[in-house]
């Protein structure tokens, strides 16, 4: 009897897994394009950057429009302080009107003092209540950014966070593969148990499955457990 298996769905599941296995290259490209779009959208910005951080504040991916931004950004993570780390940790937008006079990150301002960086805005990337990184814009002039620039950056942050969180989910494919493997294993088990009942009691496949379900309900067990008992040849299950 030719039975049509729902293989379309199975291929969808597999496609979903493969779709999630984005290469690091793709993430970097997405982040780079985002940085460029931000720079072009905020007036007065001389550079923009995006950092993706893991749960311990370590950078997993980043992109900047300019070398200056790359260096200033790297220094933050080396020193463990700076506006982006604060934005990430506090989960709120940080505005630095003048790097030279702002007292919040003395080590960092010390080293960027000679770079063409005077004002900064950084906003956290929050996806599903989890902060996954920060966006930042830099200017070589003091007082270049106010609340308006902060608002524009925040507008970018919401959709960017959602997209980047999905690209990022490196553990997800593994979890999905496990669920799929488990499901295929369980299905095999049920089918084997059906086969045993069919042979033993001269049943059709539907009758065998209905019988398995009846036993699972009567014994207050699961279909998987009942099937496993039958396949394992546990005598009570074979009556």
């Amino acid at each position: 009897m030719a039975r049509k298996l729902p293989l379309d769905e199975l291929s969808t599941v597999i496609a979903r897994i493969q779709g999630l296995l984005l290469t690091e290259e793709k993430v970097d490209r997405a982040v780079r394009l985002l940085a460029r779009a931000i720079k072009d959208s905020v007036s007065g910005a001389t550079g923009a950057g995006v950092s993706i951080l893991d749960s311990r504040g370590r950078r997993t991916s980043s992109a900047s429009t300019d070398e200056v931004v790359t260096r200033a950004d790297a220094l933050q993570y080396d020193l463990g302080q700076g506006p982006c780390l604060t934005a990430w940790a506090m989960e709120e937008t940080v505005i630095v009107r003048d790097v030279v006079t702002d007292p919040r990150w003395p080590d960092w301002t010390d080293v960027v003092r000679d770079m063409p960086i005077r004002s900064v805005v950084s906003t956290p990337l929050i996806a599903e209540q989890e902060c996954i990184g920060a966006l930042k814009i830099y200017s070589d002039r003091a007082d270049a950014f106010g609340d308006e620039a902060a608002r524009v950056l925040e507008l970018f942050a919401a959709p960017a966070a959602t997209l980047l969180a999905n690209i990022q989910a490196s553990e997800a494919p593994h979890r999905i593969s496990e669920a799929l493997a488990e499901s295929l294993h369980s299905r095999d088990l049920v089918n084997r148990a059906c086969g045993i009942l069919m042979q033993r009691h001269s049943l059709t496949v539907d009758m065998a499955l209905a019988e398995l379900m009846r036993r699972a309900r009567r014994q207050n067990s699961t279909l998987g457990q009942i099937s496993a008992d039958i396949v394992a040849g546990i005598p009570a299950a074979l009556e």
């Binding site: 039975r3 049509k4 298996l5 729902p6 379309d8 769905e9 199975l10 969808t12 599941v13 669920a179 799929l180 488990e182 499901s183 295929l184 369980s186 299905r187 049920v190 089918n191 059906c194 499955l209 279909l223 998987g224």
Partner: peptide, 15 residues
């Protein structure tokens, strides 16, 4: 639901 149903031997698709 569909994945569980599939794992129990279900025969129709998610759709």
């Amino acid at each position: 639901l569909w994945l569980k149903y599939f794992s129990l031997g279900g025969e129709v698709g998610e759709y």
